[in-house]
Design a protein around this nucleic acid. Structure first.
Lengths: 205, 205
DNA sequence: AACTGACTATTTAAACAAAATTATCAATAA
DNA sequence: TTATTGATAATTTTGTTTAAATAGTCAGTT
């Protein structure tokens, strides 16, 4: 896949890690290439040897995070007792992902409207994975006869994910803030479970 | 309620109308008090005789719009054939309200985080009305035996409204824009109906 | 009480310089 | 040839000043 040497890949990865820490703690715009280089006792110029520019560095960190998220999601959704549990796994995984990397995503808030296409591709890939895994779960449960046959499982999953997203958005917009604080998270979580409960019942006979 | 004379109220209302037109066509920040006064062939100073400042004028227009919205909602939800139809009425009413006054709400986008408390009160009032009317509908249907008894109807309605909101938010965030365009509206609408369908089934026996 | 013209106060916009930061590159060491 | 750097160029952000636009006030008129 990558054409560089092992050594090169290792260093590349170290840079990614250092960059991640900075982005996570200070956000995109408040971390400089100098600081990242400094953390590794390297010259800034070397960063440009490994990465074409700052935004590409950020995107590659993002890509790495997304890959890890997708991995945990796949391992979690490999086995489940019932449909509801499968969805709960997804809810929890996504929740942890967002909480853990909260500050990292300030790039998204700042660039709001015009995120680079590459970022959108990553977001789409994550979403696609969620759709695939969860719709597979629906199919399995439908085959077992635990729920009604579903004509278009992907569409249904898409709908549920949108709805769950709404619980988060509404919870914070009522509180006059854009992103949820710690104390809201429990509320969001329990609301989601309640919604999930009704939704799954709506899929049953 | 108001302590002014009839004449005063009529003029006040004319100002509100003129202001509404300006806000609707050009948004809050791009309409000046001079222009509003000019439209009515009045002096700017007179506007300050009727309203303490520009933002209060905007808020009072908003209050008027909200009142009208609540009225249509109440009349629509006065009678309904089944629960699903009641919710559809709400969805449609809200949809029309937002589409019609799309530009008027640019004030919300600009001031995003720190909307005045008064605006939040109006939003809360609207939300409260929706909760009251729709939870009443749920109670009626439950009493009729058309759906399962619901322990806390308000909570359930709140949840559904959040979920429906999510359909709108997600639909646009996938499209890389903040507010839905005409061509997305049909998609949102049909997704909402689908969600509503599953949700209502989840409330049945 | 309803209204205005002329005024002041505040906010926004433009222009510009200074500072910070990104990005490049010729030179050097491994 | 690959990895690395210091010095430097290019660009973006930040701060400052000034001018213009707009909000808001008020003494005085109808």
């Amino acid at each position: 896949m990558s054409s560089g040497s092992d050594q090169q890949d290792i260093k590349r990865d170290k840079i990614l890690d250092a960059a991640y820490q900075r982005f996570l703690h200070y956000g995109y715009s408040k971390t400089t290439m100098n600081e990242i280089a400094g953390d590794l006792s390297l010259s800034k110029a070397l960063l440009y040897y490994y990465f074409p520019d700052k935004s590409q560095l950020y995107i590659d960190v993002m890509r790495k995070l997304a890959g890890e998220y997708i991995e945990t999601l796949e391992s979690k959704l490999n086995q489940f007792d019932n449909l509801k549990e499968a969805f709960i796994s997804q809810i929890d995984a996504q929740h942890d992902f967002i909480v853990k990397n909260y500050n990292f995503f300030d790039f998204f808030r700042v660039n709001e409207q015009n995120l680079p296409d590459t970022i959108w591709e990553i977001i789409t890939e994550i979403h696609q994975t969620e759709l695939t895994l969860l719709s597979a779960a629906i199919k399995i449960e439908a085959d077992k006869g635990n729920i009604k046959p579903v004509a278009n499982p992907i569409e249904v999953v898409d709908l549920l994910l949108d709805a769950l997203h709404g619980v988060r958005v509404s919870a914070v917009s009522h509180k006059k803030v854009m992103f949820p604080k710690k104390e809201h998270l429990d509320e969001i979580h329990s609301k989601r479970l309640m919604l999930l409960d009704i939704f799954v019942k709506g899929l049953m006979y």
